[in-house]
Computed example of a mutant assay.
Amino acid sequence: MHGPVSAGWLLVALCAVTGGYCLLRMRSAVEEQRLAAGGEALMGFGMAAMAVPAATVAPPRWAWLAYAAVFGAAAVRALWSARAGAHHLHHLVGALAMVYMAAVMVASPGGRHGGAGPPLVTGVLLLYFAGYVLWAGVRLIPVPAGAGGAAAPAVGWGDRPELARACRLSMGIGMFAMLLTV
């Protein structure tokens, strides 16, 4: 990522913490949540690695090819899993966006940050993630309990849906910020 170094490190921290929480969510008793958390952990740590400021570390060209291969495989898995639910389509778009950003870095001179991707593809991805961030943010707004509302069942902190939504929101914001630099 190019731009202000402090912003880059904040993005690295946000993505790494999100990836770490997603790893903890993989201990859930709910199988679907475990599977989604694994893909989200991969995305969080991959975004953290890609967001390291270029002024600090300039990865070699083969590293960008490795990112493209890993996230290409993640895209195939998300496409296969999309048969079961729409949320996997979001994982597919996220994985393809990571492949796109890695490909832009491979094509840039010297394999360094700051390449320019096709404006149409970048624009479409920016619009998608801006919409996703707004949608995910609205889903975090608390809904008032009904008049005779019963207490919600106790769940472990790793199974709380609002924390999973907050992680998805933070990764959407991170993806949007990374796409701005392409």
Rank of each mutant, 00 (worst) to 15 (best):
H2T: 13
V5F: 05
S6Q: 14
S6D: 14
G8F: 06
W9Y: 14
L11C: 06
A13P: 01
A16N: 02
V17L: 15
G19V: 01
G20S: 11
Y21G: 09
Y21D: 01
L23F: 09
L24P: 00
R25C: 13
R25Y: 01
M26R: 14
R27S: 10
S28Q: 11
S28L: 09
E31M: 03
Q33H: 12
R34C: 09
L35H: 04
L35D: 05
A36L: 14
G38I: 01
G39N: 08
E40F: 07
A41N: 04
A41I: 06
M43C: 02
G44F: 06
M47K: 04
A48W: 05
M50K: 02
V52F: 07
V52M: 10
P53W: 07
P53H: 08
A54K: 03
T56F: 09
T56P: 01
T56C: 07
V57Y: 13
A58V: 13
P59S: 03
P59A: 02
W62A: 13
W64C: 09
L65H: 11
L65E: 14
Y67K: 00
A68T: 08
A69E: 03
A69Y: 02
G72E: 09
A75V: 05
A78T: 00
L79P: 00
L79V: 10
W80L: 12
A82D: 04
A82P: 00
R83Q: 12
A86F: 11
H88P: 00
L89V: 15
H90M: 05
H90P: 00
L92K: 02
G94Y: 01
G94R: 09
A97R: 04
A97L: 01
M98H: 03
M98F: 08
V99I: 03
V99M: 02
M101H: 03
A102D: 05
A103P: 00
A103F: 03
M105N: 15
V106H: 02
V106P: 03
V106C: 08
P109L: 09
P109E: 14
G110N: 09
G114S: 08
G115L: 04
G115F: 05
A116V: 15
G117L: 06
P119R: 13
P119V: 14
V121W: 11
T122M: 03
T122E: 11
G123T: 06
G123D: 02
V124H: 03
L126Q: 10
F129V: 09
F129Y: 12
G131N: 10
W135D: 12
A136R: 14
G137V: 02
V138L: 15
V138K: 15
L140A: 11
P142C: 07
P144W: 06
A145W: 02
G146F: 02
G146Y: 01
G148A: 13
A150H: 03
A150N: 01
A151V: 12
A152F: 00
A152L: 15
A152G: 05
P153L: 09
P153R: 10
G156Y: 01
G156W: 04
W157M: 11
G158I: 12
R160N: 12
P161D: 11
L163V: 13
L163C: 02
A164R: 06
R165Q: 14
C167N: 14
L169V: 03
S170A: 15
M171H: 07
I173A: 14
I173G: 07
M175S: 07
M175V: 06
M175Y: 07
F176M: 10
F176N: 01
A177F: 08
L180F: 00
L180R: 10
T181A: 11
